[in-house]
Computed example of a mutant assay.
Amino acid sequence: MGYVKGISFVLLWYIGIIWSVIYIYAPFFIILPFSRKLYRKATDIILSCWEMYPVSLLQLMMGCRICLSGDEIDPAESAIIIMNHRNRLDWFFLWAALLHGCRSPAHRCNVRWIPGIGWGLQMAGFLFLHRNWKKDKEFLKRALDYFKELGENYLILIFPEGNHLFDATKKKSNAFARKTGLPGYDYVLHPRTTGFTFLVQQMQKNSRLDAVYDLTIAYPKTLPINELDILSGKVPEEVHFNISRYAGDTLPRDEQGIKTWCEERWAEKEASLKKFYSERNPDRRRLSPKVRFARPLNAMFLAVVSWTAVTVFTTYLTFYTTWGFYYTCFSISGFLLVSYFTYGIQNFELDLFYKYDYHNESK
């Protein structure tokens, strides 16, 4: 039954992504050359609606419970989210935390190359990085300045550890710690602070840093490591998030101060997670004494029914109508060309802005 549920969950989610991107997202691409602001608002609304679907499947179909403690996330703020990286799927479970831990639905998390989800996230303005700091620094600056000029609020997720926690990365991280006189960690990796420091300083410079949200994620029982675990039905019974909000004006402004601030948060995570996992009874593990168990929302039942219906209907259009088949082939070809011969739709969006809007405004 685990494999049946796991495969059904992944198929519903993934097929739903592909057809939603092709039939709902793609038509809005024609707006982009004419109005960046309208395009951004339209794609953000679609993403917020769609993201409820995989979260609803996760909770209603797979029985995963989301446990929250600490502060709420305000999506009306421009903020940075930092989080420890326990496995390759943390970003997916974060969607559930954002749904239940925000004052209202929100979001902006690398899956760029995956057909379907990668295309949709390109259109949604997700910031995909090269893992080359020279290129990434320039791209991040352009993107942050772009959102500032549009007057858009945004949440940027960054995993300062740079990789998820497993034996090889832990060994490498602690080897670095020994060389630099830092303590060894068992439950987190030492953070790489270059990207985080740049984001903080650039957003401070733009007067757009309202807050930094520090999230600690933990899995008290089942721990999936990668996508194959989900296919086999290995979904965590619970995922715990502790959220701490730090006002933007309380962060240091100098590079060393920001670096030290981030390292202090990771030392706190290590202590918190050590205490969490030292509890022998998984049912009693808590990141905080005050835990909010996120109950399924009524809208989640509607999301499952409506988005599954959309998936079935668009599947029918694709394989049983001529225009649907050719439209799908045309859309997929377009996404593939843009994704593999440029650095994605999000870069094309920035290029249009800096060539036309920004140039005209500067005049």
Results as ranks from 00 to 15, higher is better:
residue 290 K to H: 09
residue 99 L to P: 08
residue 343 Y to K: 05
residue 336 L to T: 07
residue 122 Q to H: 02
residue 211 A to M: 07
residue 167 D to C: 04
residue 164 H to D: 08
residue 295 R to M: 01
residue 264 E to S: 00
residue 246 Y to Q: 15
residue 102 C to P: 06
residue 22 I to T: 14
residue 18 I to D: 10
residue 216 T to I: 15
residue 251 L to G: 06
residue 280 R to Y: 03
residue 335 F to K: 06
residue 360 N to P: 02
residue 86 R to G: 05
residue 117 I to M: 14
residue 274 K to G: 15
residue 277 Y to W: 15
residue 209 L to K: 01
residue 1 M to E: 10
residue 113 W to N: 09
residue 262 C to G: 04
residue 147 F to G: 02
residue 194 T to Q: 11
residue 183 P to G: 15
residue 4 V to C: 06
residue 194 T to L: 02
residue 217 I to C: 14
residue 203 M to H: 00
residue 110 N to I: 10
residue 211 A to V: 13
residue 95 W to C: 10
residue 136 D to C: 13
residue 228 L to M: 01
residue 94 L to R: 10
residue 320 Y to V: 06
residue 101 G to H: 13
residue 123 M to N: 04
residue 186 D to G: 07
residue 346 Q to K: 11
residue 245 R to A: 08
residue 168 A to Q: 13
residue 293 F to C: 12
residue 356 Y to Q: 12
residue 348 F to H: 04
residue 260 T to V: 00
residue 60 L to E: 02
residue 304 V to P: 13
residue 140 L to R: 12
residue 21 V to T: 04
residue 289 P to W: 11
residue 101 G to T: 15
residue 186 D to S: 14
residue 81 I to Y: 02
residue 72 E to R: 10
residue 307 W to S: 00
residue 225 I to D: 07
residue 337 L to R: 10
residue 90 D to K: 10
residue 65 R to V: 01
residue 41 K to D: 06
residue 149 E to R: 15
residue 320 Y to W: 05
residue 111 V to F: 12
residue 19 W to M: 15
residue 252 P to E: 08
residue 158 I to E: 11
residue 284 R to C: 07
residue 142 R to L: 07
residue 200 V to K: 00
residue 14 Y to W: 14
residue 199 L to D: 08
residue 246 Y to M: 13
residue 60 L to D: 01
residue 204 Q to A: 10
residue 191 P to L: 01
residue 241 F to E: 09
residue 64 C to K: 11
residue 43 T to C: 10
residue 271 A to P: 14
residue 315 T to Y: 03
residue 302 L to E: 15
residue 212 V to A: 00
residue 159 F to M: 14
residue 245 R to D: 04
residue 111 V to T: 05
residue 155 L to G: 11
residue 118 G to M: 15
residue 349 E to Y: 06
residue 243 I to T: 01
residue 289 P to R: 11
residue 2 G to S: 03
residue 183 P to E: 04
residue 70 G to R: 05
residue 47 L to F: 15
residue 352 L to H: 08
residue 245 R to H: 08
residue 28 F to Y: 07
residue 90 D to G: 13
residue 289 P to T: 02
residue 17 I to K: 07
residue 87 N to E: 09
residue 284 R to Q: 09
residue 11 L to P: 13
residue 141 K to T: 09
residue 238 E to W: 15
residue 234 K to H: 09
residue 57 L to N: 01
residue 320 Y to Q: 11
residue 264 E to C: 12
residue 163 N to H: 15
residue 40 R to Y: 13
residue 128 F to N: 00
residue 140 L to N: 14
residue 115 P to R: 11
residue 171 K to R: 04
